[in-house]
Write a protein that binds this DNA or RNA. Structure first.
Length: 464
DNA sequence: TGCACATTCAG
DNA sequence: TGAATGTGC
């Protein structure tokens, strides 16, 4: 029997581990819930719910191929190896297959599993599917990993352009196997979500539908529309990429298919796929990132403010800065935030409030349905100017200018901050005018933008 | 994907 | 006088 261990690759098409296993003979699929580790990793309730709903579709799709899906539980990653081994023994598994996950805890878990399986005579086969170019394959001429995105992308593009492999097909149905599939478990204790599941239909079919729709309708206008949070101009595929309902290879292939008519749009989206890969590569090349350390070591000495009250206001979307509050409320209401607004809210926390970016990183993970360690950490370290190739520390976004530029009519702001529905657009984008007409249901700005910006620049300068 | 302040230059 | 451009944080 060939065991396919599903993790963040919950799909049948273009799944290297599944494809290879099915080539070899009869397949048994498994998935392990690790609720203790999920809590430790601050996985959002919305994401746990999304995973379980995705598993429901995966199990149905696998059943059509006569592949049983067995679901087991191991509280922490440390408990995983014996569980997999006992599965292997119970079902006479001779070979195991899985697709890599790159953060340190996941790699350690997988090493332990591989060691135990190999010691028991089970062959282990590992594949790459969370990236377009596997980590370690995009290197400088001296053999070291890139720290800067632009040269990384140049090399990455050569790989991505040269050999776009064919999308791996869904395996053919196998002969029935006398192993019953597990029922999909309920959400483990401690994961609550205020997010309507109807916003995020799960499953591979839904992911493919969204991918194709994006290619047909939005890719061409992507360069202009993607920065406007009031418009659904981004792909909104991140939750599906995070659980692996769609692969980055499928995204790249779609962009290349539409290259003729979408032109700039395709190139622009491929650039975003490159950023995704870049951050995945960074956690492999620089594992200290996974230990809560900033990439720029001197920024570890910054005297972040201990301001629990300000932090709480940021979390709840009560900072008095309309675009920041709209973003934070979008996150709470939908489990997702527009990328432009992620940058604005992250910079407001780490610069204007001078609160440790790691608190914001953790809070995002607690609420994002698309929470991916590498992408979230990479984005935070970019905004907080602690990362490799991050925004320069003195280039602090002015959230009012950003709002005027990217939400000129205030449509996005008013959608998520109803108290501002009655405020004129011109007043919305000017702190002084806003304060004069501010409705009683909306808070005063919690920080002086000008002073706090200078304080942040001074704090960074002092450790430089 | 900043901002403040300086300098230059057309009119 | 104010737009355009340069410079350092």
């Amino acid at each position: 029997m060939n065991l396919v261990w599903f993790r963040n690759d919950l799909r049948l098409q273009d799944n290297p581990a599944l494809h290879a296993a099915a080539d070899r003979g009869p397949v048994l699929a498994c998935y392990l819930l690790t609720p203790g580790q999920w809590r430790r990793h601050r996985m959002a309730g919305a994401r746990v719910d999304f995973i379980l709903r995705s598993l429901r579709y995966l199990s149905e799709d696998l059943a059509r191929l006569n592949i049983p899906l067995v679901i087991e539980q191991a509280n922490f990653f440390d408990d995983v190896a014996p569980v997999i081994l006992s599965l292997a023994k119970r079902f006479k598994v001779s070979a195991a297959f899985w697709n890599e996950e790159y953060p340190l805890d996941e790699q350690r878990r997988d090493e332990a599993v591989a060691d135990l399986l190999l010691a028991s005579g089970v062959v282990v086969n590992r594949f790459h599917d969370r990236v377009i170019a596997p980590p370690g394959t995009v290197l400088k001429s001296d053999g070291r990993p890139y720290r800067v995105f632009t040269p990384f992308k140049r090399t990455w593009l050569q790989l991505a352009d040269a050999g776009v492999p064919d999308i791996l097909p869904v395996p053919a149905a196998q002969a029935a196997v006398p192993i019953p599939s597990s029922a999909i478990p309920e959400t483990p204790a401690g994961f609550s979500t205020g997010v309507d599941p109807g916003l995020w239909p799960a499953g591979e079919r839904e992911a493919m539908k969204r991918l194709r729709l994006f290619g047909r309708l939005k890719l061409k206008s992507y360069p202009e529309q993607r920065d406007i949070p009031a418009v659904a101009g981004t792909s909104i595929l991140s939750p599906y990429l995070a659980v692996g309902a769609v692969s980055p290879q499928q995204c790249l292939r779609l962009a290349l298919q539409h290259r003729q008519e979408a032109g700039e749009g395709a190139a622009c989206w491929i650039n975003e796929l490159a950023w995704r890969d870049f951050y995945q590569h960074l956690v492999v090349a620089f594992p200290q990132i996974c230990k809560g350390r900033p990439f720029k070591t001197e920024t570890a000495r910054i005297a972040w403010r201990d301001a629990p009250h300000d932090f709480e206001r940021w979390c709840q979307g009560n900072t008095g800065v309309p675009i920041v509050d709209a973003g934070m409320r979008q996150l709470l209401a939908t489990g997702w935030m527009h990328n432009r607004v992620r940058m604005i809210t992250a910079m407001f926390l780490s610069k204007n409030l001078l609160i440790d970016w790691r608190r914001g990183e953790a809070y995002f993970m607690e609420h994002l349905i698309d929470g991916d360690f590498a992408a979230n950490n990479g984005g935070w370290q970019w905004s907080a100017s602690t990362g490799t190739d991050a925004v320069p520390y003195f280039r602090v976004f002015n959230p009012f200018s950003q709002a005027a530029r990217f939400d000129p009519e205030g449509i996005y702001i008013r959608r998520f901050v109803p108290a501002l529905k009655t405020v004129d657009t011109a007043d919305l984008h000017d702190p002084l005018r806003l304060e004069k007409v501010r409705p009683s249901g909306y808070p005063e700005v919690i920080v002086d933008l000008k002073k706090s910006r200078l304080a942040a620049i001074a704090a960074f300068k002092s450790v430089g």
